[in-house]
Amino acid sequence: MTDTTATEAQAKPRRRLSFHVIGPLLALVALIVLGASLNSNFLGYGNVTNVLARSAFIGIIAVGMTFVITAGGIDLSVGSMAAFVAGVMILAMNALIPSLGIGVPLVLAGMAVALVTGLLAGSLNGFLVAKVGIEPFIVTLGSMGIYRSLTTWLADGGTLSLDFAARTFYRPVYYDGLFGVAWPIIVFALVAILGEFAMRKAPFGRHCAALGANEQVARYSAVRVDRVRMTTYALLGALVGLATIMYVPRLGSASGSTGVLWELEAIAAVIIGGTVLKGGFGRVWGTVIGVLILSLIDNILNLASIVSPYLNGAIQGVIVIVAVVLQREGKSAD
């Protein structure tokens, strides 16, 4: 099977791939047009800020998830990890109030705790996958249960609340911003830009794709396979920490039901964006579009009263399946 046949047959369809590339973008534009035609407030400052700020949590996590999936992995634990990080962060901040008082040092300390907890939690996943060699699905299914249960335990079955004064001081991190752009949106944009750069231009992104495409080839090409794989999970953990930093000031509390199903939303966004679920190819900008598509559907259903918002999950499910079908057609044309 090494003759010209394969060569000739595969040389052409490059151009057709472009639909595969712009598909998610077209879907996003269509949703924006639909939203604007249904409700005049849709493109207003308030609504746009609301949609983007809410997208930021899932978005930041989904950027990290893009690397994990591209490298041939999966992480089901991010939702419960977020709850766990939020719980630890709140407990730490409450405990530090006597020594640090209410102020910037307290908030910075809380942020550091969140980032470190996320990094450690992600690294644990990465260690079990890369060094111990357990299937990522199994590892993260297990840690999903562990982090969720630890959160419920820390909260003693109820809710962990940030001290009222600290919450008031911390609130602006979610609600304020720079030049009218909310902080979560700014952070999300930065993470997305850095992620896109790392995926497209940096050796790390190339190594992730090589690893996801064929681990053996990567190993024989002197790619430090274990280290790259470990890094993708650690990076995702740190990004979960970052997302939690943005999330805690919104509600000021965490419970066993915080972040439920976030992992599925993040994975769905990655897949809608055109990253291949079995690894080997990923694109961060696609993930960003995937996140926006999911949030816009939710938003439009809430604004327009044509379809019940209760059907949000169903519509998102259909979109994910359609995206994968389109992806497959793009591939069979190859």
């Binding site: 794709a209 090589a210 495409a213 064929n214 053996q216 080839v217 190993r219 024989y220 080997g280």
Partner: peptide, 8 residues
């Protein structure tokens, strides 16, 4: 299997 990424 070990030398080239055939899909890249």
């Amino acid at each position: 299997e070990k030398g080239l990424l055939l899909g890249k």
